[in-house]
Amino acid sequence: MRLLVLGGTEFVGRAVVEEGVARGWKVAVFNRGTHGVPDGVAALRGDRTAPGGLEALRSGEWDIVVDTWSWGPAAVRDAAELLAPRAASYVYVSSRSVYEYPVAVGADESAPLVEGSPDEAGDPGREGYARAKAGGELAAVRAFGDRALLARAGLILGPYENIGRLPWWLNRIARGGDVLAPGPAELKLQFVDARDLAAWALDAASRQVGGAFNVTGPVGHTTMRDLLTACVRVTGADARLRWTDPEPILAAGVQPWQDLPVWVPPGELYEFLHRTNVDRALGEGLRCRPAEETVADTWAWLSSLGGRAPQRGDRAPVGLAPEVEKALLSGPA
């Protein structure tokens, strides 16, 4: 199989590249060349936001193209239109953010979407992320029709994470001592390991599957207790999880998801993030590794970097300020 990854050096894109290489496929990446590529991977250089920046893609044929673009969807439009005559399948890694919020519990891929345009250019900013992803979907479908596979990912974790969610928890727990653990401890979580997302996308695309899929782990794939306990176990830290109810945490002005990554208290946002209908993806072969494997492999990767994970420039760093954690721990837990 001939695989082209637009990007291919960070997080999901890198997971896709490594999965393709592991399968013995012929893999090429297209990017600006600011990061290295694995051995045996062809490097095509260009800037998809610049005039004439797609010249390196004007020749060549591929079985699968994978695109993880998160900014102005006009870049997806231009690449997809150029590649449509010479590629069999186009995988656009989208997001569940494309759904109009709130989303009814149990809703599937037919739920209403936010408005987006395939012709919007530029950086939409954090507030425009959902609109940008929706526009990217429209661009992919307009060029590839039913040959476009839309992977509406939920929370993505795993090695190479450049958002900082699981790395923050691992680094915090590795420091040891009392750790603020947001409850309820048995709160069920959904996420997908970037490597499982990559494997599923390549499997589905190789079978010429098209259409939209919610791609994350099944409901209750893990819990807050199991996730944080796994962090304690793999780091070997002398850390004590101090489980704390949501009320005092929220009263202290702590922002769920941002200050305490992964966690949101029970409520409307929790239902959206951690009670996703993934029946369609599971039926199409999605398989998710145990959460502890994701935690352990992420810690091994993070340790190889001295604990300093890469950080996307368009995302604010996540994590709870030490003084806020200390203040909360000094109260009743």
Rank of each mutant, 00 (worst) to 15 (best):
E325V: 03
P38G: 04
G306H: 00
A201T: 10
A321Y: 11
A143C: 08
P51Q: 00
P246F: 00
A132S: 12
H274M: 08
P102G: 10
P182T: 05
G158R: 01
Q208W: 15
T216G: 10
A50Y: 01
G8M: 00
V234H: 01
C231N: 05
P266R: 11
Y90I: 07
G177C: 04
P261W: 00
V41L: 01
L302V: 06
V29C: 02
A107P: 02
A281L: 12
N214L: 11
T229S: 07
P317I: 03
P248H: 09
D279Y: 13
P102T: 08
Y129H: 05
L227T: 00
L3I: 04
P167H: 14
G7M: 05
S304N: 08
P182M: 08
N171Y: 03
A88G: 10
R126S: 14
A198R: 01
R175Y: 13
A181N: 06
A291I: 04
L227P: 05
A281C: 05
P102F: 11
V5E: 04
A42Q: 14
V5K: 08
Y270T: 02
N214E: 14
D78N: 03
W301T: 01
G236K: 07
L44V: 09
G13R: 03
D39H: 09
A121D: 10
W62L: 01
L189W: 09
R58T: 08
E19P: 07
P218E: 15
V29Y: 02
R240S: 12
V324H: 05
E19T: 13
Y99M: 00
M1P: 13
Y92C: 12
D259Y: 09
T68K: 01
R131A: 05
L149F: 05
A87C: 09
Q208G: 14
K326Q: 14
R2D: 09
A252Q: 11
D226K: 12
A194T: 06
G72R: 04
E292I: 11
E292S: 12
L282Y: 14
A50E: 04
T34L: 14
T49L: 15
G253M: 02
G177T: 01
W25G: 11
R147Y: 14
P266T: 07
V17P: 03
W299H: 07
T244E: 05
L197W: 04
P118L: 04
R225D: 13
G307S: 01
G285D: 08
A50V: 02
Y90G: 08
P265K: 06
S95R: 12
R2C: 08
V232C: 13
Y270I: 07
G176Q: 03
G13M: 00
P310N: 00
Y160S: 11
E323Q: 15
P265T: 11
R77W: 10
R275C: 10
G253H: 06
P332L: 12
G285H: 13
F272C: 07
S59I: 15
A291R: 00
R14Q: 03
P317G: 04
R207I: 13
G176M: 03
R172T: 15
D78T: 06
V179S: 04
L155C: 13
V179F: 06
G210L: 13
T68W: 01
A333P: 11
P317R: 09
S117W: 09
R195M: 10
A139I: 11
Y129D: 02
Y160F: 12
V264G: 10
S110A: 13
L305N: 06
E268I: 13
V234T: 01
D78Q: 01
N162W: 03
G116V: 06
G220Q: 04
